[in-house]
């Protein structure tokens, strides 16, 4: 696994974060240090071990498909500046 500036740039694009040069250098060093420290997990044998997505087993919980009271239109838009008529307004797609 090659940890270099290209990798940091690729990950930051996927994560929707713009990084300036200084940040890229800093995070590159952090990636190297952290991944080296985390490499210990390689030695653990997990063949035939199931994943624990949660610490406790849960059944999939679905609610009945019945309409319930939801937030009012006023409340839904209370925290946004980007509203037009009854819609959130977003930036252009392309």
């Amino acid at each position: 696994m090659k940890i270099d500036k290209e990798l940091i740039e690729k990950v930051s694009r996927v994560a929707r974060l713009n990084l300036h040069e200084e940040e890229k250098e800093g995070f590159l060093k952090d990636f190297k240090d952290v991944l080296e420290a985390f490499a210990k997990i390689k030695d653990i044998d997990v063949s035939n071990v199931d994943l624990s997505v949660h610490p406790i087993k849960f059944e999939n919980v679905l609610r009945e498909d019945k309409p319930e009271k939801s937030l009012s239109e006023k409340d839904i838009f209370l925290n946004t500046k980007h509203k037009e008529k009854r819609f959130f307004k977003g930036p252009r797609i392309l």
Partner: peptide, 17 residues
């Protein structure tokens, strides 16, 4: 967009986010 910090809507979706 819906809540939290926001700014003037400039650029594409990805650029703005």
């Amino acid at each position: 967009i819906r809540y939290g910090a926001s700014d003037e809507l400039k650029g594409t979706f990805n650029e703005y986010f």
